[in-house]
Design a binder for these strands. Structure first.
Lengths: 137, 137
DNA sequence: ATTTTTCACTTGCAATATGCAAGTTTATAG
DNA sequence: CTATAAACTTGCATATTGCAAGTGAAAAAT
């Protein structure tokens, strides 16, 4: 997925989804917010995969422009911002679950992180509900 | 997703999944094979989005190396090859369904293609079964 | 009062990836 | 022989990525 596709979208829902999410980083950022509980720019910068700061900023902007995440001031510490999923972003919960299931099933990494995979397998409903939270705006 | 990530994978199942599928084209190719029924290189070349030939070749190689698709000779017409999903590729059926549902729900294209979205909504089981086919090797 | 630290980015630049057009290969059909 | 078809490959200009360093604004430390 590209962040700003030059070509027109085809109208296919998958093409649309990929125009928002289809790159190497967007879904990892969403994972960090949705599953790991990352909230600040600094949290996101030091995720497992080591995204570089310019790419992180660019992707956050793109995801915000596309209504998947939103940025707010931290009420406790005014100088930090908090990133969070919008309802549209929370609606990605089932997609995240499927990604985890497929990735976990075929993952051939030397030292796979099996925790999330196990948790989705044992209680998928719970996993999704945790991300979906209350259905507010 | 990149085709050949230089950086080591983190072990996270999502990171693994994205190392295979996380780019602008791979899932569109898989969609064309799984949903549209494209089988040959030429079929795939003239999909809705207009992938260029070098990128198509590169992605097919990557997907094949990662066990998602396989290439065979066409028994009827020996000089054409047929691309098809492996069991690992067919296991993407639920992920494709979720992509369609999410993409279809939020798609803001001028002229959205709503057919697949409608079909997944009305009969998700049937949609997935059509891709999963018989559970063979 | 000055220096340091923190947070959230931006900027510069080299390396890599993408996209377009044209060319290649192999083999049969006319 | 010449043309056609299928599946790619190659060249090259442009776009995107990634690394390292820098910026700005305000609070905390000295």
């Amino acid at each position: 997925m590209s962040t700003k596709p030059k070509r027109a979208l085809s109208g296919c829902p998958i093409d649309y989804a990929l125009s928002v999410l289809g790159d190497r980083w967007s879904l990892l950022i969403i994972r960090d917010i949705a599953i790991k509980g990352s909230k600040t720019y600094a949290d996101l910068l030091d995720g497992w995969e080591g995204i570089s700061t310019n790419i992180l900023a660019q992707r956050l902007r793109h995801l915000e422009e596309n209504g998947v995440i939103r940025k707010r001031k931290n009420p406790a510490n005014w100088r930090s911002s908090l990133y969070e999923l919008t309802p549209k972003g929370r609606d990605l919960a089932p997609l995240l679950a499927e990604l985890v299931l497929w990735g976990g099933k075929f993952n051939d990494a030397r030292d796979p992180k099996t925790e999330t995979y196990a948790s989705v397998r044992s209680d998928r409903q719970g996993f999704e509900r945790k991300i979906l939270g209350e259905e507010s705006a």
